[in-house]
């Protein structure tokens, strides 16, 4: 059987919030080591990959690999019933389960709610993501990244990201004119979560659709920092760490000159 008990149900709520607007139906692959999810948006421009290792759970048992086809809107309805400090238990049978049980327990043990979510058949292409050496890595506050994407959306539907040795520039333009926001590599680091790190091998200059970046920033509550990995003519990677026990990575195909 598959059984996973998460002490802080709020984490699962946050994970779901960060994937459900991008991917409606997702395959949750469970094996002895971790739960993984990979899904693309309907236009095949963006992809989300989530990894949550067994260590994240208070109790984790997976006798046989099992794949749960989850409708994220249905799962979200159940998790709306959970408080952040509720315990969440996921349960499913071993072989081709057609449903998954979710049990919510209040912290004081006085309230238990249980739900059965019907699983869905999902025919989806899984993509092999190659190991890539990126030209630039930018690590920054996740809240600042969210702010920049939101602010620039007022000016255009795409953002140009340019990395040079010491800074990263986010630019957007449209009918109102042009907006540039430049972050400079932090000279001193007082608080790691507020500092900006630009690690550059080669300069990059890429353009991405802001609509998707704004969806990615739904993961902001998961981590204080975010890492952007960029290479010329390659998809952008936006990564949020889930503590020491996993990550949410978003991949976004660039817009290229016609």
């Amino acid at each position: 059987m598959f059984e996973a008990k998460l002490q802080q149900g709020g984490l699962l709520k946050k994970i779901l919030e960060s994937v459900k607007d991008l991917v409606v139906d997702g395959l949750w692959d469970c094996d002895g080591a971790a739960i993984t999810l990979q899904g693309m948006d309907s236009s095949h421009v963006a992809l989300v990959e989530m990894l949550l290792r067994a260590e994240a759970f208070e109790h984790y048992r997976c006798d046989r690999n099992v794949t749960l086809g989850m409708n994220h809107n249905h799962l979200s309805k159940i998790l709306k019933c959970a408080n952040n400090d509720d315990i969440v238990i996921l349960k499913a049978a071993d072989q081709n389960p057609d449903s998954c049980s979710l049990i919510l327990e209040s912290k004081n043990g006085e309230k238990t709610s249980d739900f059965v979510v019907s699983l869905v058949r999902i025919d989806t292409d899984q993509l092999g993501i190659p190991e890539t050496e990126y030209s630039a890595h930018v690590k920054m506050s996740s809240g600042e990244f969210q702010r920049i994407c939101r602010d620039l959306s007022q000016f255009g539907d795409a953002v140009q990201i340019t990395c040079s040795k010491q800074d990263v520039k986010f630019s957007s333009s449209g009918e109102t004119g042009k907006a540039n926001i430049t972050l400079t590599h932090s000279a001193t680091v007082d608080k790691e979560e507020e500092s900006v790190t630009v690690d550059l091998k080669e300069p990059v200059d890429l353009t991405f659709a802001l609509r998707f970046l704004n969806l990615f920033t739904k993961a902001t509550p998961i981590s204080d920092t975010v890492t952007l990995s960029l290479s010329q003519e390659a998809p952008l990677v936006v990564e949020y760490k889930i503590g020491d026990s996993g990550h949410i990575r978003y991949f976004l195909a660039p817009k290229i000159q016609e």
Binding site: M40, A46, I129, P235, A253, K255, Q257
Partner: peptide
């Protein structure tokens, strides 16, 4: 203008 590329042109289907 710029054209939106698809992820499948960078990553192979498994």
């Amino acid at each position: 203008g710029r054209k939106q590329t698809a992820l499948t042109s960078f990553f192979k289907k498994m």
